[in-house]
Amino acid sequence: MAENKTAPTDVPVEAFLASVEHPIRRQDAETVLELMRDVTGEEPVMWGPSIIGFGSYHYKYASGREGDAAAVGFSPRKGNLALYGLTYAPEAVPLLQRLGKHKTSVACLYVNKLADIDLAVLKELIALGYRTITTADPEAFQS
């Protein structure tokens, strides 16, 4: 079975953030870093080359594939901030409606810039996502 490509690394988070070229994206990433650190009580870890994760959880799919992933995290991409683990809980739906300008996909929340959203709502989404993922059954996140 293939090994998960997104695994914790020893790359310093600060070094990765310093490499983010766009100054607003870098500043937004530093803000999200502090929000996630405060809410989760976890220290950030690089997962793969571009995801900053907080905590972890074990997943197991019906196919037999299993592994570990960051409980919540984010990646400052060129076009947006991608936030992971914040949309799984059913209780996230009303929070997303109050968040402000964003897009979602199956497992990601995309924000162009933090100025477009309500940071208090983002903080609630981080807390909900972290709590949901770290207390769920490993088979709860099937794909």
Rank of each mutant, 00 (worst) to 15 (best):
D38I: 05
P44S: 09
P76L: 00
A89L: 04
L83R: 10
L96E: 09
F54D: 00
S75F: 13
F54I: 00
R77F: 04
P49V: 02
D68L: 03
F74V: 00
I51L: 15
P23K: 06
D38S: 15
R77D: 07
K78P: 01
A70M: 14
I51V: 15
A92N: 10
A92F: 08
Y59Q: 06
L96P: 13
A29Y: 07
F74Q: 02
L83G: 05
A92R: 11
P49N: 13
A71W: 09
W47G: 04
P94E: 08
P23C: 11
L33Q: 10
S50Q: 10
H58G: 07
G41V: 06
I51S: 03
V93N: 06
P23H: 12
E30H: 12
K78S: 11
W47I: 01
I51K: 06
R25W: 04
F54S: 01
M36N: 00
V39D: 04
E42G: 01
L33A: 09
T87A: 11
I51Q: 10
G79I: 05
A62K: 14
E34A: 14
P23M: 05
L96D: 06
A89Q: 09
G67F: 00
P49L: 08
R25P: 02
L33P: 07
V45Y: 02
L33D: 07
A69R: 07
T87E: 08
V32G: 03
R25K: 14
V93H: 04
Y84R: 01
V39L: 08
S50A: 14
Y57D: 02
